[in-house]
Design a protein around this nucleic acid. Sequence first.
DNA 1: CTGAAAGCGCTTACAG
DNA 2: CTGAAAGCGCTTACAG
Lengths: 329, 329
Amino acid sequence: MTTVRDVAKQAGVSVGTVSRVLSKNDTVKQPLKERVLAAVNNLNFKPNLAARALRTNKVDVIGLVVPDITNPFFAQLAKCIETEAVKRDHSVMLANSHDDVEIEQKQISALSDRTPRGLIVIAASDTRNIEYEVDIPVVSLDRRFKDFSLVSTDHFDGSAKIADHLYSLGHRQIAYIAGPQNTEVGRERKEGFLSRVDNLNKESDPISLRVFNGQFDYESGEDIGRTILASLKTWRPTAVAAANDQLAIGVLRAARDMKIEVPAELSVTGFDDIELASLVVPRLTTFRQPIELLAKAAIEAIFTNDFENLETRLSGGVIVRESTSVITD
Amino acid sequence: MTTVRDVAKQAGVSVGTVSRVLSKNDTVKQPLKERVLAAVNNLNFKPNLAARALRTNKVDVIGLVVPDITNPFFAQLAKCIETEAVKRDHSVMLANSHDDVEIEQKQISALSDRTPRGLIVIAASDTRNIEYEVDIPVVSLDRRFKDFSLVSTDHFDGSAKIADHLYSLGHRQIAYIAGPQNTEVGRERKEGFLSRVDNLNKESDPISLRVFNGQFDYESGEDIGRTILASLKTWRPTAVAAANDQLAIGVLRAARDMKIEVPAELSVTGFDDIELASLVVPRLTTFRQPIELLAKAAIEAIFTNDFENLETRLSGGVIVRESTSVITD
DNA sequence: CTGAAAGCGCTTACAG
DNA sequence: CTGAAAGCGCTTACAG
């Protein structure tokens, strides 16, 4: 294994100098610098990262804790985060919390022990309260984690835009399938939707809205979809807006099983724009979260190390596809 | 920060002793051991991992390189690997190769620089040849990486089982959509299918088989599906077997668009059993890869450090769902 | 079985 | 601007 000593010897300088040019420490004048660089190249020297870590107490790693990497939305976020990290010569360490606060806590402390540059955590939706002590920058992404800085989409606004879309198509009988109300995302999306509907609602042109509570998964969407569609005689919605794409896709499935044509008889909207949204039949109208920007902002927050506990809200837009249409009858 | 010195002082022993009990070095007699453990607990001591790494040249990390974490199959593998790693108090470092050998190489060398215990790589399907020099255990998973040990499903056998399933349902007109033939998985699955069909084929009861070449994605499946279904007058298959679930789901989509009932008019099978397979309409009959076992075997291979360049082939089974049915006419 | 000590490969004040 | 030297916190021969 070649070390700074070898490089120093070959370049005819001290190890301190080698270290300085490697850490881009400015100083070190041209001639020396060149000799060092030449030697580094020549010997194919790679600094021992553990030694560096021991001295600096930092390692070029970003820790990422997600509830479940198989959730397509989190996978996309993880991918973008990794891409951003690589740009900065960092690696990412991945941990799943399985949406369980206790596991989350263990994972966070395991990651912290490795002294990464910072931690990005997409919080478990679980509500139990656990104390954390971490001595590195932490930023929560998408789902707020404790009282750390948050980078997320403006869910409130996004839901409002979906409501606008449906309204503009003429829908006045609307079902909203909310996400779990013990999560901030779930609450914000619901509130955004409800409050916009409330604004739009006029006595001369009333909107009838019903709200259902679900989880953020396919099964839940399918179940609730079935419930809604089964009672069509009692109350017939012309549109159902779901708090995320999985829910919406579940509804699509229920509709298909029950021979209800989407969008002819029922418009359906999602939220997130996971890859699958554009692949289901019919392709899903949804709200696209700015995934790349979210990832960038989260990484940025780690590096600027702004401990102001700030909130970064990014906006996205409605992607209109085939699952929504104007009311014709 | 509390160090071994602090612990040693409190326990009234030498730092060597502390280190020895922490590294489960057997030796160290009960009385001392207990005092050390008490001090560790008392001071909430956590060893500095970087220091340990510097000495041992190893860190409790598994590097994982995948083509793309947003591929649901890889995400599931990654999740299982992470679970296994945690069981052994290891973390996992994740890198995407974007299915590009050059990026893969950079990622691998970046990970190796961090001296993980080992590397699990799901190879890029790209074919260019690049030299690697790594000094840690490497095992390829699912897709063979160079000439390193491979842990994978027995694709040949799996495809054969799918062929059997279709045959037993009475299908004799079959289309096979192969995966990219520059990947070993693609080739093995195809060969497994073709060779079984070949065995089953009798003059008295002939099978007509056509093979199409695709990529492992939805679009490709949809395109090819459309092609096959558009020429139904020329040649009408009663079943199409796809080399993976994404392809099959693409076919399902094409069939739906073209008003062809699955499975009544056409049976469709996939391969992998990604989560989505059981959520599409109709639910997809497919071959389930033993994901958990694959992950376990890969991790196991890293730890036993069996450099025999062995091949571990795990078998899975056909999951019969709604997309296949017997031929009735 | 345990302690004293060397040393892993860096970085970074401290001089000059 | 550069060198000599200390030291980060562990582990592990080496004695005894």
